[in-house]
Every structure is written in structure tokens, then in C-alpha cells.
Computed example of a mutant assay.
Amino acid sequence: MVPKAFEAGYSHTSGFRKVVKATILVKKKEGMSDEDFIEYYNNHHAQKAVPILQRHGIISYSLTYHLGRDRRLIQDIMHNNAKLLQYDAICTFVFPDYLALAKFLYDKEGAALNSDHENFMDDSQMKMMVGDEFMLIENGEKVG
């Protein structure tokens, strides 16, 4: 049983997924190509994280890239008026509650992954946002 303080969502509300979504903004290591960044993150770092995350009840884990190609395309679409974040990837974890997130963050194997950051990212630039997700449309359908 999860203590009430660690439950997901906001009390007396509806429309939230009742999950804990951790979004991490990542900047690639200086001088690393987009291709090398994707290859390392997808096939090395993320693959090491998967079994640790699964051990702590992760619901989903995804990486979204925002690299040269993406920046050029969105600037073309928006006639160079897009105010883009200066980050190269978004790492998204969805957990059932804060306790599961905390267990992952303090897992010895999970903590050991931090030393791998130097191989592909600038750890000093990493930013995090954590909260629940209010759903308006899911699978193409209006929610609620």
C-alpha cells in the first residue's frame, strides 16, 4: 500500500491520469553529433535503464529528440518564429506514484547510471519537471 502522501494526482480533481510523470530535459555532450547522441542514448544508456525501471513498476519510458533536423523543420513551418528550447532530448518516465519514482531514483543500479551521463550528455544542463498529466484527448478521442 502506497502512503497517501506518495499517491499520484491531485485530490478532489478529475481528468488527471493519476500518475507521476517525470520529464527530464537533456543537452547532448559538446561536440557530439546528432547521430552519435541518438545511437548512444537509445542503444546503450536507455537499455541499461529499462530493467531497473521495470523493477520499480514503471508505466512508460520514452525519449523525444529535438535535434538539428527537427529545429530546421519547425522553424520552416513557423517562418523562423518558433521559440525553441535549447535542449536536445526529453526523457519521460511515467510511474504509478511518487514512491515508485523515489525507489528508482535511490536504486543503487539506477544511481550508477548517472556516471554514464558523461558519455553522451551535459549533466550540468539537465532540468526536471515532475507532476500529473491532465488528459484532454487520448487516442484521438476527447476525454471526459
Rank of each mutant, 00 (worst) to 15 (best):
E30C: 00
K18D: 13
Q75G: 05
N81P: 11
E141P: 00
P96G: 05
E133N: 00
Y40I: 05
Q54H: 04
S33P: 03
D116C: 00
E133Y: 00
V26D: 04
V20D: 05
A46E: 02
Y106P: 01
M121W: 03
M129D: 13
F16M: 11
L67M: 01
A22E: 12
D70F: 05
G9V: 06
G140F: 02
L67N: 01
A5E: 15
F16K: 06
K27M: 11
N114R: 14
L105T: 06
N42T: 13
Y98G: 12
G140H: 00
G131Q: 00
R69C: 08
E30Y: 01
A102S: 14
Y65C: 04
D34M: 02
Y40F: 07
K83W: 09
L105Q: 10
Y106A: 01
F134P: 02
S124T: 12
E118T: 09
N114G: 14
F120H: 04
F95L: 08
I77A: 07
L136G: 08
G15Y: 07
I74L: 14
N139P: 01
M1C: 01
Y61L: 04
Y87V: 04
R72K: 14
V94R: 07
Y41D: 05
Y87E: 02
I77T: 08
Y41M: 11
L85S: 11
K27L: 09
E39F: 08
A22H: 10
D116H: 02
F95D: 00
K27Y: 10
Y65M: 05
H56S: 01
F104W: 13
N80V: 02
H44P: 00
N114I: 15
K28M: 09
Y98A: 05
S60P: 09
G144P: 11
N81H: 15
F16D: 08
K27I: 08
A49H: 06
R55M: 05
H56N: 06
D123K: 14
I90W: 11
D122L: 04
A49L: 06
D122C: 06
H45K: 03
R17A: 13
H45E: 07
L25Q: 06
Y10N: 15
L85P: 10
R71F: 06
I90C: 10
Y10Q: 15
L84W: 10
T13Q: 07
H117F: 11
H12E: 15
I52C: 01
K103V: 05
Y40A: 03
Q125A: 14
D70E: 12
A102N: 13
K142N: 09
